[in-house]
Write a protein that binds this DNA or RNA. Structure first.
Length: 825
RNA sequence: GCGGAUGUGGUGGAAUUGGCAGACACGCUGGAUUUAGGAUCCAGUGCCGCAAGGCGUAUGGGUUCAAGCCCCUUCAUCCGCACCA
């Protein structure tokens, strides 16, 4: 046999697999299915190592499950709408579609060079009309179900991207994509009512044991459910009311002021009649000029202004001042907060600064507090009420319930659940996205584009000028249309949808990708979906994974799918690092997958990336490590070449009892390896240790390189070695399989099963300990029970020597492991 | 500040249920082969020590015959959330 030449064999097999449609899949209700999915990429132009890691993990699972007999769906596609294509158009004058499609072509080529087992016939590209038609159709479904609406709101605006952003896309006050500062703007925008699903999105996280705890925690925090009381203070001078929300109704008797957000509608109303109008408005302006980061930092100084207007605490009839402040959030709760300095640290600091009185209402159970000597608010969630009328003396949790009952009974308040989660802002003032299929008619108002007219196509001839308004809004032929209801002249919605909409349902489209009548057929989606194993980066813990769950639940409620969670199991892979930090152009530490594949082949690249670290941990790239993986594949090639004759003359079925002890030892290692690799891949995603155990098998095989060995055993070892390695290194195993076994593709063989008999040993080595310290190793009969083992060990010369002149206090024997002799003296 | 994760040789990492710490690999050292280099094959490689032996899984303590693993303390690094009333 020739030398291992990855470049030659990899291309050969990739071509052959494609010609013979080896990875094509069809739904087959008679067979158990397995849906393996990697997060589809944005077509930036080139694969990076993170992609290689992602796809390598997914490909191992898909190939392994196929060999286990599952009907496997393993598709790929492109999340191809978004800003970068438009930026390329602005900068270089290329059309976003051309830029995107040529990037896709290049990335597909790179993906194909990895030898991934995708069914390319199912490819989904979100920027193609055949796909975004259904994205628009789904928008209309949401609209019809009352889950899509337009409203005027204070929204996040990114100047650089020239568009609004969803809350989830603002990271530390900055744009998730371009990292520039985000500020608030009042605009009329489209939202999806994800808040209607807040509770079920939260609750159903408990139905996902196959998700990392970390991701579930992040989603729980993001949804941010809290229970409390909403109640109203009367404003006698204005004949009005102001409603507050609190999770600490037990402190309601300690209210000494009322705090409003600068944006609260009451502020403007107060200004209408107030003689402090100018002062208040100046303060409001100052607050609104602060950046989001400043405004929401707990470190910022708490400031406010007394409006001079007062309101009445319905619990105790006390009159308190209404303040406008910079620390109350306008869009959480009611935008108004009861101020209890003794029970809340923020209120404490505010009251200290402005000399607002305090009332103590909660004390610890074991001692009294004195406002005069306190240095901070008492915020423990444990204590007894004081100064609280009929609730004085009551334990705080009991009081909390009692106080809420009182508010509800007397009709000035109601128990209320609040969420941190906001509705999803989905309109974007950009061109390269799916147009929102809505027409604005002067007579009929908002009208959906009829289904027969979908998709609303993106026009091709638009101009891109940086800093201008959305190209779509400038495109006359796009904007002007007739109202589908009354036929009058009307205008189109010129905003497009957030690309996260496109990616919230793509995994369903894969099940029926060419359907022209519907987003997917019910039988197909219900056969293949939900996804059995989803694999991707942790960066989508909230964004994509929350949105996809939301979509799935809405589609479930609409009867389109028979399940209500999209991803059964989730694996969040670690990052690929170089020199301790994430690969990036600016750091100059990028390793190009294409170069690595050209130099060593895809099998080496895949093997290294799977071997170098557990899948969920960050992986440090090592050029020397890659060499090591390449060397290992060379070793596999050489040892099988060396045994070529034996493999070919060996028989598949043979008399195992004829093997020598040494040969039995090798056979035992083989079957231990089969067990280990199976369990590591199937149960634990421990690809690194699966590969290391295959390496041990190869090392053991080398031990017979210059020795006489049974041909049948050689054949058995070689065959199973290739089967075990096939999911990790698909090309080299296919090539060796075709040369040595020639029974069709190695990837269409059955996954090997280990032989329980082969694992048995007559003699085993156990450890001898004295007082817990290792003092020797002994070989004993494997069949001995605890008692017999103890006797056998104590009788050995080594044990005698170690215990001579000492009193044996106790002997602990662990079958097949060790004997520990506890001695004294 | 709150929540979560992680911490093991020179390096990446292994130890699945409390039972031989360091599998496998990188690197390094030596040997074989080779005109030479490379490649390959073999052996060695936690630290201290000539050895016997001792020490050793971030820190300090505890439980246990036995602890990387369980409990408590402290520290470090990373991630998420963060004026959410």
């Amino acid at each position: 046999m020739e030398r291992y030449n990855p470049q030659a064999i990899e291309q050969k097999w990739q071509k052959k697999w494609e010609q013979e449609s080896v990875y094509k899949t069809e739904a087959d209700p008679k067979r158990p299915k397995y849906y393996a999915l990697e997060m589809f990429p944005y077509p930036s132009g080139n694969l990076h190592m993170g992609h290689v890691r992602n796809y390598s993990i997914g490909d191992v699972m898909a190939r392994y499950k196929t060999m286990e007999g599952f009907n496997v769906l393993h598709p790929m596609g492109f999340d191809s709408f978004g800003m970068p294509a438009e930026n390329a158009a602005i900068k270089h004058g290329v059309k976003p579609a051309d830029w995107t499609l040529s990037n896709i072509a290049n990335m597909e080529r790179q993906q194909k060079s990895m030898g991934l087992s995708y069914d390319w016939d199912r490819e989904v590209v979100t920027c193609k009309p055949e796909y975004y038609k259904w994205t628009q159709w789904l928008f209309e479904l949401f609209y019809k179900r009352g889950l899509a609406y337009k409203k005027e709101a204070s929204v996040n605006w990114c100047d650089t991207c020239g568009t609004v952003l969803a809350n989830e896309q603002v990271i530390d006050g900055k744009c998730w994509r371009c990292d520039s500062n985000v500020h608030k703007k009042d605009l009329s925008q489209w939202f999806l009512k994800i808040t209607d699903y807040a509770d079920v999105l939260l609750k159903d996280l408990d139905k996902l044991p196959g998700w990392p705890e970390r991701v579930k925690t992040m989603q729980r925090n993001w949804i941010g459910r809290s229970e409390g009381l909403e109640f109203s203070f009367d404003i006698p001078s204005m004949n009005d009311k102001v409603t507050v929300y609190t999770t600490r109704p037990d402190t309601a008797y300690g209210v000494t002021f009322l705090a409003l957000a600068a944006e609260h509608p009451l502020v403007a109303k107060i200004c209408e009649t107030s003689d402090k109008k100018a002062e208040i408005e100046a303060f409001v302006q100052e607050v609104r000029n602060q950046s989001d980061i400043e405004r929401t930092s707990s470190e910022s100084e708490k400031k406010g202004i007394n409006t001079g207007v007062t309101c009445v605490n319905p619990f105790n009839g006390k009159t308190v001042q209404i303040w406008v402040t910079n620390y109350v959030l306008a869009d959480y709760g009611t935008g108004a907060v009861m101020g209890v300095p003794s029970g809340d640290q923020r209120d404490w600091m505010f009251a200290k600064k402005y000399d607002i009185p305090m009332i103590l209402t909660i004390e610890p159970k074991d001692h009294h507090l004195d406002l005069a000597t306190m240095t901070e608010a008492y915020t423990e969630k444990d204590g007894v009420l004081v100064n609280s009328a009929e609730f004085t003396g009551m334990e705080m949790h009991k009081a909390m319930a009692g106080i809420m009952d009182k508010a509800e009974k007397e009709g000035f308040g109601k128990r209320h659940v609040n969420y941190r989660l906001r509705d999803w802002l989905i309109s974007r003032q950009r061109y390269w996205g799916a147009p929102i299929p809505v027409i604005n008619c002067p007579h009929c108002g908002e009208v959906l584009v009829p289904e027969k007219d979908l998709p609303v196509m993106l026009p091709e001839n638009v101009s891109f000028e940086q800093g201008s308004v959305s190209p779509l809004a400038q495109c006359e032929e796009f904007v002007h249309c007739k109202c589908p209801k009354c036929g009058a002249d009307a205008t189109r919605e010129t905003d497009t949808m957030d690309t996260f909409i496109c990616s919230s349902w793509y995994f369903l489209r894969y099940t029926d990708p060419r359907n022209a009548e519907a987003p997917f057929a019910r039988d197909k989606v219900n056969y293949w979906a939900p996804v059995d194993q989803y694999i991707g980066g942790i960066e989508h813990a909230i964004l994509h994974l929350l949105y996809s769950r939301f979509f799935t639940k809405v589609l479930h409620d609409a009867g389109l799918v028979g399940f209500d969670e999209p991803f059964h199991n989730l694996l969040t892979q670690g990052m690929v690092l170089k020199d301790g930090s994430k690969m990036s152009k600016s750091k100059g530490n990028v390793v190009s997958p294409e170069e690595i594949i050209n130099k060593y082949g895809a099998d080496t690249a895949r093997l290294f990336i799977l071997f170098a670290a557990p899948v969920d941990r960050d992986l440090e790239w090592s050029d020397q490590g890659v060499e090591g993986s390449y060397r290992f594949l060379g070793r596999v090639w050489r040892i099988l070449s060396h045994f070529e004759e034996a493999i070919k003359v060996g028989k598949d079925s043979y008399d195992i009892s004829a093997l020598t002890e040494e040969e039995k030892g090798l056979r035992r290692i083989l079957h231990v390896t089969i067990r280990k690799v199976t369990e590591d891949v199937r149960d634990r995603f421990m690809f690194n240790t699966a590969i290391s155990s295959i390496m041990e098998l190869v090392n053991a095989f080398y031990g017979f390189q210059d020795k006489a060995i049974n041909d049948d055993l050689v054949r058995e070892v070689a065959k199973n070695l290739l089967l075990l390695l096939a999911p990790f290194a698909p090309h080299i195993t296919e090539e060796l399989w075709s040369q040595l076994f020639a029974e069709g593709s190695v990837h269409q063989q059955h996954w090997p099963k280990y032989d329980e008999q082969a694992l048995q040993q007559d003699e085993i080595e156990i450890v001898l300990q004295v007082n817990g310290k290792v003092r020797g190793k002994l070989s004993i009969d494997a069949g001995l029970d605890r008692e017999a083992m103890q006797q056998a060990v104590l009788a050995t010369p080594r044990a005698q020597e170690l215990t001579a002149g000492k009193t044996i206090v106790k002997v602990i024997a662990v079958p097949k492991k060790l004997v520990n002799i506890v001695v004294k003296g």
